[in-house]
């Protein structure tokens, strides 16, 4: 029977039992937002187990998908069941999107992993709701860790970095790549640096540049007094070299978060952020409703706003 015909509770029930089609469908409903998505949030929330969420970000072509592909091959050997959200931009003109990250992430079918391609759908606010929703859904269905791939920086990436416990920033060897990453604000969000394509010339120079910049900049861990300094790792994703070590660095960061109760703080901030996003969305909808058909009636705009606010918050 087609999963499209199931009610939301039936669908979530099947998803929680591990039915892959039901999980796929559930993610669609989460991405579309609205009431079904809220219902799914309520139904999946109790089943969450606190999966580790890892953001993987960096410039286009840095090798994020190849690295992610290697991870989803490696993690099952550690007894883990990874899920991936691969985020790509929607076309601002048509709303459509081409999502191509799976090309470099083959070989998971049947290994228990799960890959979902996500389009940004025009406004970052949408992702701010759907990404935590999808992460929660994966978590509830027994996946962990959840890996989120995003390109570059921007509102979308800030939202996504906000959704992650650990953010891995991928750069490549080459003059200026580290500088670019710095300019793009990636230094501040990085918990782990990966210099991918280490088979190329200049990997050591890039490492030196990064170390230098870390010495000079405000690193989150150092900032909050926990003394954490993001490690710099080298990988050749195409051959899988360095991928295990990279994962160890990610788990070390997780251990650090747990040891310093930073994890709790991060997750609490994330919780507040998601509640705020949801609240904003609700408010915006209500505001839109109350503005519908509103015409000047002689009162000042300030008075009208104050009166409407009183109604809305009543």
């Amino acid at each position: 029977m087609s999963v499209k015909k199931l009610s939301v509770p039936e669908l979530v029930g099947r998803a929680l039992e591990g039915d892959r089609r039901a999980i796929g469908r559930m993610l669609t409903l989460i991405e579309r937002g609205g009431e079904p998505a809220d219902e799914i949030t309520d139904l999946t929330h109790p089943a969450t187990k606190g999966a580790h969420v890892v953001g993987i970000t960096g410039a286009p072509g840095a090798g994020k998908s190849t690295l992610t592909g290697q991870l989803i091959r490696h993690l099952p050997t550690l007894g883990l069941k990874p899920a991936v959200l691969a985020v790509d931009p929607s076309s601002p003109l048509t709303g459509g999107a081409i999502l191509g990250d799976r090309v470099r992430m083959d070989d998971v079918a049947g290994d228990g992993g799960f890959i979902r391609s996500v389009a940004t759908r025009g406004y970052a606010g949408g992702l701010a709701l759907s990404v935590p929703g999808s992460v929660r859904a994966f978590d509830a269905c027994g996946f962990g860790p959840v890996l989120i791939e995003t390109v570059g920086v921007g509102q979308v990436e800030v939202d996504v970095a906000g959704a992650a416990d650990t953010t891995v920033v991928v750069v490549n060897p080459g003059w200026g790549d580290a500088v670019q990453a710095n300019k793009a604000g990636l230094l501040e969000v990085a918990d782990v640096f990966v210099i991918n394509k280490a088979d190329r010339d200049g990997a050591n120079d890039t490492r030196r540049d990064l170390e230098l910049m870390l010495d000079l900049s405000h690193v989150s861990g150092l900032e909050d007094g926990t003394g954490y300094r993001p490690p710099i790792l080298m990988t050749t994703a195409t051959d899988g070299l360095g991928v295990e070590a990279m994962w160890e660095a990610v788990t070390a960061h997780q251990a650090h978060l747990e040891a310093t109760s930073a994890l709790e703080r991060r997750r609490a901030a994330r919780f507040r952020y998601e509640v705020a996003s949801r609240l904003t969305t609700r408010m915006e909808r209500s505001i839109a409703r109350s503005l519908d058909g509103l015409t000047p009636d002689g009162r000042s705009p300030a008075t009208v706003a104050a009166d409407l606010a009183a109604d809305l918050l009543a």
Partner: peptide, 27 residues
């Protein structure tokens, strides 16, 4: 894409198994 659809592109050298897996996961 230009007609507003979301296209999940799997590329070359796919098997029926990889296409089925993608179809499920991508709904």
């Amino acid at each position: 894409r230009d007609a507003g659809m979301e296209v999940v592109y799997l590329g070359l050298r796919q098997t029926t198994a990889s296409i089925v897996a993608a179809a499920e996961e991508e709904d």
